[in-house]
Design a binder for these strands. Structure first.
Lengths: 179, 179
DNA sequence: TTGCCCATGTAATACGTTACATGATTTC
DNA sequence: GAAATCATGTAACGTATTACATGGGCAA
């Protein structure tokens, strides 16, 4: 369901696009919120067309199909946004490592945390670069882009993770015996 | 793979347990980090026994099977913790709603955010209650419990979400035209 | 004896990842 | 003409959810 909503949201905001275009958008725009590859996207677009949420209005070179959102499609996103209560089944390998940290020796735990810090730092830099692009576009157009708010949320969460890493490493260094 | 590691981690820290016990632990301990129901846990335990990571050392009433972790199982968790680089395929319905917020009218967006704030607040209270339990246990035993660090992380993340909600609601209220 | 919790399993379906497969167009 | 990128699809496999199915033990 959520993949469908994400695709409809992109089509609704940016206008008609092909499966290929949408796959690209997933990589470099909605990526920090929802992920999908082309092998999931193409079949889903097929089903959505069958269900009348989108239509193929035009075809480009190389069999490129341009999908356009229908009024039913627009209604579907809107309804999901307003009515759907988000379910959050938490499933994070990083958090699982945090959970199991007490099974490691202090030195090992510190190494795991240092590795996590490096990847978290890299993630933060990626998100901040994206945010610069958003700021520039907003200055030009005068209104916020799709993804503006979730980007801010992602950056705040990533900074929080970094703060937790620092705290935790300091805690383990100061009292290794408590573990 | 991660489900397997989570189960091994619980068996390694708390000692022998049945599938039923582990299902309970998932509900009220590891829940904020990884989720699974009994219909996923029972078959996985069967496979893990086949793979020699756990064994059935005892059987209780009603066909209750008590699984014990083997040295291979212990080695497996340890290896995963030390070597495995966590993959984080982000997939959050709440974040997707944040992402798509610009497709809504300001009033609708505010309603969505208010609903999210209520559920986030409830989640925070649940985590803080769990943390009290951890603190009490730590005072008794003198060392940290499994899940201590990830609980702190979860609480920090949830507080950050709450702060983001307040920011965002204030922003939309002050300049509804930018959307 | 009725209802609740303990306790384990399977089946159907849905969702997601990796790998396989193919070919057109553009750019160097 | 070789390489990169555009462009679409399917198949196999793995993971996760929901529903179905069954029965023992204990307490009111």
């Amino acid at each position: 369901m959520s993949l469908r909503i994400a695709l409809l949201g992109l089509l609704s905001f940016f206008g008609p696009a092909s499966g290929y275009d949408l796959t690209k958008k997933f990589e470099l725009s909605i990526n920090h919120v929802w992920q999908a590859g082309h092998s999931q996207i193409y079949p889903e677009l097929g089903k959505m067309a069958t269900d009348g949420l989108i239509t193929v209005e035009a075809e480009g070179p190389r069999g490129r199909k341009i999908y356009t959102i229908t009024p039913e499609g627009t209604a579907e996103v809107h309804r999901w946004m307003v009515e759907h209560v988000p379910a959050e089944p938490m499933r994070s390998e990083g958090a699982l490592q945090a959970f199991l940290l007490p099974v490691l020796e202090p030195q090992e735990a510190l190494a795991v945390l240092a590795r996590l810090r490096a990847s978290t730092q890299a993630k933060l830099e990626g998100l901040e670069a994206l945010q610069q692009v958003h700021h520039r576009r907003r200055a030009e157009t005068g209104h916020v882009n799709l993804g503006h708010y979730s980007l801010e949320l992602g950056i705040m969460h990533t900074r929080t993770t970094l703060a937790w890493l620092e705290n935790t490493m300091a805690e383990i260094e100061s009292e290794p015996a408590a573990r």
